[in-house]
Amino acid sequence: MDVLDGRRVPVNAAERARRPGHVPYYGAAGQVGWIDLPLFDEDLLLLGEDGVQFFDPAKSKAYRISGPSWVNNHAHVLRARRAVDLRYLEHYLNWFDYRGFANGTTRLKLTQAAMKRIPVMLPEIEEQRQIVDILEDHLSRLDAANAYLDAAQRRVTSLEKSILREGIECTPDRVALGRLIARVEAGRSFGGSAPPADPSEWGVVKVSAMTWGEFRQGENKAVPAERADPRFEIKQGDLLVSRANTSAYVGASVLVGETRRRLLLSDKSLRLVPHPGVDAEWLHLALSAPSARKQISDHATGTKDSMRNISQASLLAVEVPNISLDEQLAQVKHVRAAQSAVNRLSSEVRTSAARTQTARRSLLAAAFSGRLTGRSSDLDHTGELVFS
């Protein structure tokens, strides 16, 4: 394989805007824009250098391109120099285990030197093509199954919104959130290292702990004991809000269930303490309902969708249903029952998706051991792919 990394040129979005065109501009995981002129005009294989989830077997690391193109410095550029089917190599590099090759503490990187050490055993070109033909026939069936499961998950998400819309938003009378809150307790920055805290250590939660509708205590960073402030410790029953997150999840709330000790609020999290007569679980549901989510999204600030912010004033101005405690508890009971059924359906979808992923990994393992074609002995006599 020829490595054409020396011909890559990064171009920022502002400059690309001044150079409109019809040439695809590629990055680590795919096309990220357009530009006026090409750097390449041939069949190539791109392998992420950074910005790729190398250790997630479900994520792609390599992809093929053809025709006029421009590639930035986040993807290695590979050209086949000998009898190599690029489809075979693409599947192989997406299956390969990158542990020991991709490294980095905050952002994984596959250096060119590390890439050149990747062992790729190549059978004869006819065998490569046969493997790919059989492999892609089976993978197309798995892709169809995944498309069905994706559609099922979208229906589950729609059901979840409908439950909140019909169970929580059915009351026309509204009140500002600030009228229901006794106080807001903001977290603070404690620093912290990348690894999660051990049970005996203090940790500070990341925004991902409050992103998915449930509190995920494992999403934290260890904090030295001398920096910890117990006033910010998270307790069971706390209602937390992520004040900074992506545009889809900024202002997301979670109700803390049973949790470990020594977890701290971060500077991107808020603790809402309701007035007596306001149920915290109902308030969490009200903030998760579509109308509240839209209000939060509309009032969020920030220039990038990847990190939006909601101020305390804007959050407290969000309007939620104005109902009595008895009505709140009745709504919680109704929503719990409906969500229980939806959760069972969602669990079945996730289990099926995990099975298709396992089947995909098994299929690829069979392909690259020779078992797929029944000619595993051929791989004992293959050559190694050489990068230069």
Rank of each mutant, 00 (worst) to 15 (best):
R79K: 15
L270E: 08
G104T: 03
V9I: 15
V204F: 06
V256H: 04
P123S: 06
G21P: 03
Q236T: 15
S362I: 02
E136H: 05
E214P: 00
L37H: 13
V120N: 01
W212E: 13
E327S: 08
T301M: 11
G257S: 06
N72E: 14
S388W: 01
R64Q: 14
A248N: 11
L270Q: 02
Y88K: 04
R87E: 14
K61V: 15
D56Y: 06
L345E: 07
V9F: 12
S362F: 08
V23R: 00
D41S: 15
I323M: 00
R141I: 07
G203Y: 13
L363H: 05
N343G: 13
G104F: 05
G67F: 11
S200N: 07
V77Y: 05
A338L: 15
R231Q: 08
R260P: 10
A209H: 07
T351D: 13
V23S: 04
R99H: 15
T259R: 10
G6H: 10
K206V: 07
T157F: 02
A354V: 04
H22M: 04
A313H: 10
R361T: 13
S362D: 12
A354R: 14
Y98D: 04
S306H: 05
T356G: 03
I131H: 08
R165K: 09
A354K: 13
E327T: 09
G203M: 10
D137T: 14
G30Y: 06
N245L: 12
P119N: 00
K294N: 01
P199S: 10
H91P: 03
D36L: 05
S66D: 10
G383A: 01
A317C: 06
T356L: 13
H334P: 00
H22W: 03
S340G: 14
A354L: 12
D137S: 12
P57G: 07
G213P: 12
T259P: 09
L329F: 04
T382D: 06
K206E: 08
L44E: 11
G178T: 03
D298W: 09
L287T: 10
W34E: 09
V204S: 09
E201L: 06
P230G: 06
L89F: 11
D267R: 05
Q312I: 11
R308P: 03
A286T: 07
